[in-house]
Design a protein around this nucleic acid. Structure first.
Lengths: 194, 194
DNA sequence: AGAATTAGGGACCGATTGGTACATTATCAC
DNA sequence: GTGATAATGTACCAATCGGTCCCTAATTCT
């Protein structure tokens, strides 16, 4: 009963996703978004409210479309297989020529003006939540196969998360996926059950 | 033969360092710098040229004052001792309450608008240079004590660098130094010669 | 006491930031 | 066709961005 949309919301989100992925939240301006989506400011604000809610919509999509491999990884039956699949997924995510390099969330969560501090805190919170899920899964599966000697499930989770962040930074720096693969291999040398 | 400076250049650099460290290059504005240094824009520009050259002066200071432990680390006689001392230094750097958390260079090198892309590229270049120095030292010292089996000096260097970046990200996320220490321990489990 | 030189204060610059107001346009139900 | 409704285009907003210009203030050398 009114004028219909002239754009596909999904395509717009996808375009916005690429931008935020490349430049982070603050590095992406409204005019960048307008150019990439071919939408006017009015349409963007009518459809998504403001820049921040658009960003969260994009993050949601990012997690659904690009971070889904985490579920499969967490379902693996031993710590090493969990870590392996998680890290392999990261390498693949950052390795393709099709996606922007680095991690969308990390590119925003690291630094910026005080304006976006709440956004960063929220992203950090999400990361910590995942770390806890990973820790719990290590705890559950370490009966099936042990962790490296002297490592608690908490240590193991922190170690893997640190490596994931490190790999994301490396990817952003142009390090090729083969190198990342070798790093992953190196990291898992002491993890039992090859 | 002219009017003398009313400020201490060193103190100004130190104040600017803290700012850039916390917020990265783009996240730090001229008015932030003016507030923190208690200098007017004129004085800043007269003394340092512009924001970017001030930033590089700050980076120089950062490396001299906070990254000096890398020299000692590289001088160690075995790969494990090199890695150990490097990573311990990172943990200590990011662990203190006195300094801003995270890494000054990383906080700038990760994301931002296209304006500061050259700066990011230069920072990435510097990181790659250090990676090569580390690789060369691993190559030289692996006769004294071997690397983990199946790891080349290049792999080892990439692994350690990745972990360093990861730890910096973790620190920025509020992870306490004790956790970082445990991560370092976990990372070095497979490295011979304890 | 100048003259020369440099530091500092402050107004000003165009460009860009995220965001809003409003008029116009297109579509639906009736 | 008409009225209601919602999408779009455009002009506009204050605030901020990095940076420049010019005038004044302070110092040393002659």
């Amino acid at each position: 009963m009114a004028r219909p949309r002239e754009f596909d919301e999904d395509e717009v989100l996808q375009a916005a996703l690429r931008l935020f992925w490349e430049k982070g939240y603050e590095g992406t301006s409204l005019s960048d978004l307008m150019d990439a989506t071919r939408l006017t400011k009015s349409s963007l604000y009518k459809a998504f409210g403001n820049k921040e809610t658009l960003f969260w919509r994009v993050v949601e999509r990012y997690q659904r479309d690009f971070l889904d491999f985490r579920h499969g990884a967490l379902a693996e039956p031993t710590p090493r297989r969990i870590a392996e699949r998680l890290l392999d997924g990261i390498v693949e995510l950052h390795g393709g020529r099709v996606n922007p390099v680095g991690c969308l969330e990390l590119n925003t969560a690291l630094a910026g003006s005080t304006d976006s501090e709440p956004i960063r805190q929220e992203l950090i919170r999400g990361r910590e939540l995942f770390r806890q899920r990973l820790r719990d899964r290590f705890e559950e599966t370490m009966a099936a196969a042990p962790l490296p000697s002297g490592m608690t499930s908490d240590d193991a989770a922190s170690f893997v998360i640190s490596l994931i962040q490190g790999l994301a930074v490396q990817a952003k720096g142009g390090v090729p996926p083969e190198t990342a693969r070798r790093v992953v291999h190196a990291a898992l040398l002491s993890w039992p059950e090859a």
